[in-house]
Nucleic acid binder design. Sequence first.
DNA 1: TTATATTCGGAGGTATGCTCCGTTTAACAA
DNA 2: TTGTTAAACGGAGCATACCTCCGAATATAA
Lengths: 193, 193
Amino acid sequence: MTDEKKPRRRPRSDGQRNRENLLNVAKAAFTAGEVDIPLDEIARRAGVGIGTLYRHFPNRDALIEAVYRAELDRLADAAPVLAAQHPPVEALRAWMRLFVDYIAAKLVIAPALNGLAGGTGALYAQSGTVLQGAIDGLVAAAVASGDISTDIEPVDLLRALAGVSNYAAGPGWETSAKRLVDILIAGSRTSAS
Amino acid sequence: MTDEKKPRRRPRSDGQRNRENLLNVAKAAFTAGEVDIPLDEIARRAGVGIGTLYRHFPNRDALIEAVYRAELDRLADAAPVLAAQHPPVEALRAWMRLFVDYIAAKLVIAPALNGLAGGTGALYAQSGTVLQGAIDGLVAAAVASGDISTDIEPVDLLRALAGVSNYAAGPGWETSAKRLVDILIAGSRTSAS
DNA sequence: TTATATTCGGAGGTATGCTCCGTTTAACAA
DNA sequence: TTGTTAAACGGAGCATACCTCCGAATATAA
């Protein structure tokens, strides 16, 4: 349990630079829909050898996961900001819409993500925690203000949203997703109690 | 250009039998979580050569799609049955829950499905139509009976459901999905109008 | 400047997706 | 029943992608 780390040396600057390069190239490729791009190609575009890629990310899934997690963190960070700017229910709504936007515009890695056959459990468990922390705060605030029923499980909303992002095919899906957000908010209100 | 088909002969019986064998074996494998099973192995289990598999399904995606579509049809067929057995809103709710059950118990091919990198659009468009037909009927009935707001797009509900199925990780996800169905129904009601 | 831990990078082993084509077999006609 | 033929069978083999391994290069600390 003692997680002693002996950073005898500072991490090498080129190492970190290469790592970020790889991450950026991978994100760009996935966003462009090149989900099945060979790892060799990613390494080439990033200007590094294949060996370097594999040291940073032991396998394909690890790379996808890293890209995914980085974007996820940014989304999670937006929650407190929105909470400070809007009343509870609207903050929740805004964040859910942001979720949709994010997936739509910048992150089409959803298919790639689901391609993580097998190990999804662990990944979702980990990263789900991050997002859950974000939405938990928003929901808690909305419950406290009396706008939302107390028996709503934040994770339910998260799942619906995640689903929509996967279904991101066909024209007009984005407005459809926005509508869905409204339905979810309406369904969570205390009105009918 | 005239694509006249002259079915001079009936399709061979062994051909169809082999095709169904392959489909069953593939479904079983996917359901068992063996998403990455080599196609050679599927052919072996079905008792046919690899060449036979590839004639029926030109590539891996085609096989997955075939399995997917077959199951989808069965789900769609359940809609009219439920509509005949329950009042509109309850029929809708029941069908949505069935959707969840189906994915949960018998169809863990969701990850495989999403692995159809690239061509998802076409597939979803096609098969989405089938499901949409099913839910359209249910929603129309509920709208007609005045239970549900008229501005609900059935496809929205579909998307949320599809999403949940992808998020099928972690314990208790199933009850969570059921809760979500209730939220969606509640959010679609006319009460607040 | 010297020492050394860390990173780099690509050749190559392994395995999987898919093709090709000679052989086998079921359907049809006489 | 028997011959003809179009269609299905099946596996050897090629292309390619993932990943490992290890000598060379290099940034950091003394």
